[in-house]
Computed example of a mutant assay.
Amino acid sequence: MKIKELIVVEGKDDTTAVKRAVNADTIETNGSAINNKTLDMIRKAQQARGVIVLTDPDFPGEKIRKTIAEQIPGCKHAFIAKELALPKAGRGIGVEHAKPEVIREALKDAQYMQETENEEISREDLLDAGLIAGPGAKERRELLGNILKIGYTNGKQLHKRLMMFQVSRQEFAEAILKLRQEDIHE
């Protein structure tokens, strides 16, 4: 599978994992303290070929993703669920631990993230769905992120993430129905 866009990853091990899964070029951020030189490279890549951001499903990965989204609009974002980015043994979480088929699926499902003023889903909707506060809310958010392929986020950021990915009321309702069928802490 050949990917036209450049894929932004965190480090060399992530590049190795991506190249095992697909034929693609990568840009490595070399950690969460992403510098201006790297941002300029990503900006140039976005203009020339497009960019897919594929960072680890952890706090530093989200920090990198947020920095890129703020600085370089129009990038696609791909997510790998935490449980699919765990090592067979040892510690850590990351793209480098994901199986090739998981990486291919994440890249295939990459989506644009953009700011929007159109609020289809309210914070009240999130409360009603048990996604903010209460027992099991974290697990439901994690499952929702996997269902919608927008990654995991905390309660405060969920509303913003739904808006950035322009999730419609219908998509949200279908995801909540699927979530409830999974019977997570209901």
Rank of each mutant, 00 (worst) to 15 (best):
C75Y: 08
A48L: 06
G74R: 07
I93Q: 14
G50T: 10
G155H: 03
E5Q: 15
T15F: 01
K149Y: 02
I3C: 07
A78L: 15
K76S: 01
D125L: 04
L39T: 07
I34C: 02
K138Q: 08
I93R: 14
R49N: 12
I121R: 01
N23C: 11
F79I: 07
D56S: 10
I72P: 00
I147C: 03
T67A: 07
G61K: 10
N36Y: 04
T38V: 12
E139Y: 10
R169L: 06
L127D: 02
R65V: 00
G11N: 09
R180C: 03
E70D: 15
Q170V: 12
V22M: 09
R141H: 00
I132D: 00
T38A: 06
G136A: 08
L162T: 11
D14Y: 12
K2S: 15
F172M: 01
E119M: 02
K88E: 15
L6W: 10
T67G: 01
L126Y: 02
N30K: 15
R141P: 00
K108F: 02
E96N: 06
K37R: 10
P73E: 05
C75V: 15
L131G: 00
R91Q: 14
I80W: 11
E101K: 15
A173L: 05
K138S: 08
G31P: 13
K88Y: 13
M113F: 03
A98E: 04
A17N: 11
V8R: 07
R104A: 14
T67E: 12
I68G: 05
D40C: 05
L158P: 08
T55G: 09
Q47N: 12
T67R: 12
E105A: 14
D25C: 10
Y152D: 08
L6S: 03
L143C: 06
A17Y: 10
V102A: 06
H77Q: 09
K63N: 02
A85S: 13
S32E: 13
Y152M: 05
F79V: 12
L107H: 15
R104C: 13
E105Y: 14
A98N: 07
I27Q: 11
A85L: 11
L86T: 06
I42N: 13
Q166T: 08
L158F: 02
D128R: 12
A175D: 07
Y112F: 12
E28M: 11
D56I: 05
I72Y: 09
D25I: 05
A85E: 05
E28P: 01
E105G: 02
R123W: 10
R140S: 10
E139C: 01
K2H: 15
I52K: 04
L54V: 12
K63H: 10
K76Y: 07
D25Q: 14
A129G: 00
Q46R: 08
E96F: 03
A89S: 12
G11H: 06
D14G: 11
A133R: 08
K63A: 08
I150C: 09
T116N: 03
Q47M: 06
E96H: 07
N30D: 10
T16V: 15
L84S: 14
P87I: 02
Y112R: 09
D125F: 01
A106K: 13
E142T: 10
L158M: 11
E28L: 03
G94H: 13
Q157F: 04
G61N: 07
N36W: 01
I176K: 02
K63L: 15
D56W: 05
A133G: 00
H185Q: 08
T29M: 04
R140L: 00
A175C: 06
I52P: 05
H159M: 05
E10A: 05
Q170D: 04
